[in-house]
Amino acid sequence: MSNSEIKASSQTLETAKTTSSFSNVDPGKVIRWTLLFLGGVVMVMPIVFMISTSLKWPHEIYELSIIPKEPTLENYIYVLEDGRFYQWFWNSLLIATATTISAVIFDSMVGYALCKFKFSGRMFVFVAILSTLMIPTEMLVIPWYIMARDFGWLNSHWGIMFPGMMTAFGTFLMKQFFETVPDDFLEAARIDGLNEFQIWWSVAMPLVTPALSALAIFIFLGNWTAFIWPLIVTNSPHLYTLPVGLTTFSVEQSVQWELIMTGAALATIPTLIVFLLFQRYIIRGVVMAGLKG
């Protein structure tokens, strides 16, 4: 075989390889990956745009380029030097943390009782709690407002927090999780002399830690980003939460998008930290909530 022949045949082999590797591609896989990629872009673009806008000068924000022409940290300096940001941040943190602790405790307590105690009317109570999930927040804010007004809770941290101190979703989630705890554990503890509260706290609760973590994250994120209710129930700026506070950057004549986006970018930091710390629980929680639901 001559050299040229060898070269030619190796080329043929290469072509054959390429063709065969193309023919091996599963079209279903291509479609799946394309859809996933597009979905990813749709999810990520607002975040990219938020960060990009926060690094732009005001005259540049209506140019839809992703990379700023003259990137600046001026917006961050402005927002962080403006003392209000820290107050909003603290309010959000306080409200989200308090609500999370309260909801995790009460949701799991009610969920446990509905799951493990046999009493008449149990299903009725459960269905009644579940049915509240079908009422949108927008419909609830007026009765909440009237209640807060009558109790004198308007313009207070407690006024912002009280509707979220216990959640129907959390109760449902925890009830479903407690179903997975075998009764033998509880009975063993009962024989060992624990009272019902101790059984719930020191036996049942540690067995549903993944669910508790997932619930805690859901509730924290939900309250951290809550907007409508905190906006309605407060009108003193020192009580504003971050999402409400950020709206003060838009005034009648103009909207300072660069400052709103900067504040929003800063506000995502705690949620990112929470997510990174507990991501395996969030994912497991979502998967399990899906399975149980």
Binding site: P182, D184, F185, E187, A188, R190, I191, D192, G193, L194, V203, P206, L207, T209
Partner: peptide, 20 residues
């Protein structure tokens, strides 16, 4: 009497030992 007042101990089929 409550289980704890009966001075008994029980071993269950699925052990019921606390995983945590």
């Amino acid at each position: 009497l409550e289980p704890k007042e009966r001075d008994i101990a029980m071993v269950f089929q699925n052990y019921a030992i606390y995983p945590h």
